[in-house]
């Protein structure tokens, strides 16, 4: 698309119609408005994360830090468990995303075949799980019986894939022209080869999408840590942050104890610290959203 659009833009430069102007104004207007409306509150988050309490507690907006106080970052980053849990989370996100995408592709591909018998029944089987679940207790018992507690796999297996990602992938596959597969089959390709050689190269946008979903899910998950893992060496980042923030923060009057008050500063610092990697991943995935991939495949 990038390739195609460039000459079109050049051509248009000669004569821009009123329509071009209107579309541009609308498109740029909408996007600009959104970007500003998001950046401003976000700057507040960043400012608070590096400001002393006196700034944080002042009502009104704090878009640019005026006084600096990195105690929030210091408190969190000096926690022994913090960096280790960072590593565990990176591993978890990588392994979880890779296995999730792989299994999603394997499952979505056959289900995209319109001639596969029992396909609709299987789809129902999947969709049903998106709306009904047995709840926390039976799941906990299951995981205990499978001996997954205090096991790294507990971060991967019980949330391997989601029905939603599966459906989106399947739909993407279905939108690909069937002619591609037919011609490959004529060349003697097996089903696996069709998936790997024909579908996969065409599926970068959808793979980028579901990778992002899985990755973000794994990055943010901490309930499974709390429920199933008690070993410190397996703690994930978000859980460590939760415990740091929760430690000593109680509104209970009966406790009668002037325990540590974790300020907003610290919360925001935790938020910023945990956000950095996930924000950095996006630009890498982004190129798959922009590249037009049909071009090459049609030629081949």
């Amino acid at each position: 698309m990038k390739k195609e659009k460039q000459p079109a833009a050049v051509r248009r430069k000669r004569k821009r119609s009123a329509e071009d102007w209107i579309v541009d104004i609308l498109a740029y207007g909408i996007v600009l408005l959104l970007v500003v409306s998001i950046l401003l509150p976000f700057m507040q988050v960043i400012t608070i994360s590096m400001s002393p309490a006196s700034v944080v507690n002042k009502t009104g907006f704090h878009l640019i830090p005026t006084e600096f106080d990195f105690s929030g970052y210091r408190q969190i980053a000096t926690d022994d468990n913090f960096w280790h849990s960072y590593l565990v989370t990176v591993l978890r996100a990588a392994a979880g995303t890779a296995s999730g995408v792989l299994v999603t592709l394997l499952t979505a591909y056959p289900l995209a075949k319109t001639n596969l018998p029992y396909r609709k029944g299987i789809m129902m089987f999947v969709v049903f799980t998106m709306y009904f679940s047995g709840g926390m207790i039976p799941k906990y018992l299951l995981i205990k019986n499978l001996h997954l507690t205090n096991n790294f796999l507990v971060y991967i297996l019980p949330c391997l894939i989601t029905g939603f990602a599966l459906i989106i992938t399947r739909n993407f596959f279905m939108s690909l022209p069937p002619a591609l597969e037919e011609s490959a089959k004529i060349d003697g390709a097996t089903n696996i080869q069709v998936l790997l050689k024909v579908y996969l190269p065409l599926s970068t946008p959808v793979m980028a999408t579901i990778s992002l979903w899985y990755c973000v899910h794994h990055w943010n998950a901490w309930m499974d840590n709390m429920l199933y893992v008690t070993k410190n060496s397996l703690y994930v980042l978000q859980y460590v942050i939760q415990t740091i923030l929760a430690n000593g923060q109680t509104a209970d009057m009966e406790m009668m104890s002037d325990v540590i008050v974790h300020t907003e500063t610290m919360k925001m610092a935790a938020l910023v610290l945990s956000l950095i990697p996930i924000v950095c991943t996006y630009p890498f995935l982004q190129k798959y959203f922009v590249k037009g991939m049909m071009v090459g495949s049609v030629k081949g």
């Binding site: 029992y118 609709k120 129902m124 089987f125």
Partner: peptide, 13 residues
């Protein structure tokens, strides 16, 4: 046929 498939799916589940 939809029902059949449905039934098949239900059966599996």
């Amino acid at each position: 046929k939809t029902y059949k498939r449905l039934m098949a799916g239900m059966l599996v589940s």
